[in-house]
């Protein structure tokens, strides 16, 4: 069964015809070529497919594209748009690079979005809160220690005050 959906992806309104069986992750990757969102397990466990749906992180392999018509989706590509334009790395990206918080990079797009959500809600998280905040994102390479360090550094160095660059 085909259906036409309209939604906003990375600030751009889009209209597309999808098979109702299409998962949001497949729609983003195969129909919109936004391959920064990864598909790992397709069972909601690994978090590689994490995107923001109406401002909250979700696992895009657990959602039907046709069921989120009318919603706003932000993927890692949309999130780094500003950084790409200015040539600077976003503070979260810079800290990940500095602390070797990625190796193969497969988990990284989802991990970064979860970190962003965490810091929006808790600008100064404890280590336990950081680990709690990224519990839905599996990383098979880093052992998490470097990711935790990166987040700790962002939390202590980045200004979240109005006028500061912030983490938005």
């Amino acid at each position: 069964m085909q259906t036409t959906i309209q939604l906003i992806v990375n600030n751009t309104p889009c209209e597309a015809t999808v098979d109702t069986r299409t998962l949001l992750v497949d729609f983003l990757r195969d129909q919109l070529d936004l391959t920064g969102t990864h598909l790992g397990c397709a069972t909601g466990n690994c978090g590689a497919c994490t995107v923001m749906l109406d401002g909250l992180t979700v696992k895009a392999c657990t959602i039907l594209a046709a069921d989120v018509a009318g919603s706003t989706v932000t993927t890692i590509e949309g999130w780094t748009q500003d950084a790409r334009q200015s040539g600077d790395l976003h503070p979260i990206q810079a800290a990940f690079v500095k602390h070797h918080a990625l190796q193969c990079g497969f988990c990284t797009p989802g991990m970064v979005l979860s970190v962003q959500q965490l810091l929006k809600e808790k600008p100064h998280p404890t280590e336990a809160e950081i680990r709690h905040g990224i519990a839905g994102n599996l990383c098979r390479c880093t052992g998490y220690a470097s990711i935790v360090k990166a987040v700790q550094e962002i939390a202590t160095t980045t200004s979240l005050s109005p006028g500061g660059r912030g983490l938005g």
């Binding site: 909601g44 978090g47 519990a135 839905g136």
Partner: peptide, 9 residues
């Protein structure tokens, strides 16, 4: 329950 993303949905 689960993790952040599971709780969001």
């Amino acid at each position: 329950i689960g993790d952040v993303q599971v709780r969001n949905r």
